[in-house]
Computed example of a mutant assay.
Amino acid sequence: MQDFEDNSQIQSTNRHGFNESNVENTQCKLLDWKGIRKVFGEGTVASTNPLSKAHHMDLGPNYWKV
């Protein structure tokens, strides 16, 4: 394990390994919930901030607004 004296060197990644600091305004495909990986729409990532609102509620951790 590597020690970091400067926390700015640490990049935040989610459980899928994406670096969330650079994904806003990125094109994405929306997949169905059942796991058959059928694309049902396309969008743009609007926010990965857990405090961003969707329908007047905080998104929370590990959720993205598209």
Results as ranks from 00 to 15, higher is better:
Glu5Arg: 09
Gly41Val: 13
Asn25Pro: 05
Ser8Ala: 11
Gly43Val: 09
Gly41Ser: 01
Phe18Asp: 02
His55Ala: 14
Thr48Arg: 08
Pro61Ala: 10
Trp33Ser: 11
Thr44Val: 15
Val23Asp: 00
Ser8His: 04
Leu51Asp: 09
Ser8Glu: 13
Gln27Thr: 08
Asp58Arg: 09
Phe40His: 06
Pro50Val: 08
Ala54Asp: 10
Leu59Gly: 01
Ser12Val: 15
Thr48Val: 12
Trp64Ile: 15
Glu20His: 05
Gly35Glu: 03
Gln2Arg: 15
Asp3Gly: 11
Asn19Pro: 01
Thr26Gly: 01
Gly17Tyr: 06
Lys65Val: 06
Ser21Val: 05
His55Val: 12
Glu42Gly: 05
Ser52Asp: 00
Gly43Cys: 07
Phe4Val: 06
Lys53Val: 04
Gly17Phe: 00
Pro61Gln: 11
Glu42Cys: 14
Thr44Phe: 08
Val23Thr: 01
Asn14Leu: 03
Trp33Glu: 14
Gly41Arg: 07
Ile10Tyr: 03
Asp3Trp: 05
Arg37Gln: 05
Phe40Arg: 08
Gly17Ala: 03
Lys29Asp: 08
Ile10Ala: 08
Gly35Tyr: 03
Arg37Asn: 08
Asp58Ala: 04
Asn62Thr: 14
Thr44Leu: 13
Trp33His: 07
Gln27Asp: 12
Thr13Cys: 04
Ser52Met: 07
His16Val: 11
Ile36Pro: 04
Val45Ser: 02
Gly41Asp: 04
Ala54Trp: 04
Lys65Asn: 09
Pro50Ala: 13
Lys29Met: 14
Met1Val: 15
Gln27Trp: 11
Gly17Trp: 10
Gln2Leu: 14
Glu24Asn: 11
Ile36Met: 12
Asp32Gly: 10
Asn25Met: 11
Lys38Cys: 05
Val45Lys: 02
Arg15Asp: 06
Ser12Tyr: 13
Ser47Leu: 01
Arg15Phe: 12
Gln2Phe: 15
Lys53Ile: 04
Trp64Tyr: 14
Met1Arg: 12
Asn25Asp: 11
Ser47Ile: 02
Lys65Thr: 05
Tyr63Ser: 09
Asn7Phe: 13
Lys65Gln: 12
Glu42Gln: 11
Val45Glu: 01
Val66Ile: 15
Asp32Asn: 10
Lys38Asp: 04
Asn14Glu: 12
Leu30Gln: 05
Ala54Gln: 07
Lys53Met: 10
Ser21Cys: 00
